[in-house]
């Protein structure tokens, strides 16, 4: 069993976020989803320093320039 990680997925495409989150959850990871920059920052604040976060974002995510 690999190490359990916390993921924050940020993308404006809900279908992609859901599919990726499901794959990660199947691997027993913890996943949070955000569709824009504000929500992403709000979710990231709740993450502990020890946790790792991997952010996938596209240039078109609302709030990102």
């Amino acid at each position: 069993m690999t190490q359990r990680l916390r993921y924050l997925i940020v993308d404006d495409d809900p279908a992609f976020c859901t599919a990726l989150a499901r794959s990660l959850e199947r691997l027993q990871h913890e996943v949070a989803i955000a569709h824009d920059a504000d929500a992403a920052l709000a979710r990231a604040r709740g993450f502990t320093r020890s946790g790792q976060s991997w952010t996938s974002s596209s240039p078109r995510v609302p709030g990102c320039t």
Partner: peptide, 20 residues
């Protein structure tokens, strides 16, 4: 090419999910 990336990734994830 950029626009195609996201839906292709989504489909790949769904298919991998089913294959798992």
């Amino acid at each position: 090419a950029h626009e195609l990336g996201t839906p292709l990734n989504t489909m790949k994830l769904l298919v991998e999910d089913a294959l798992a």
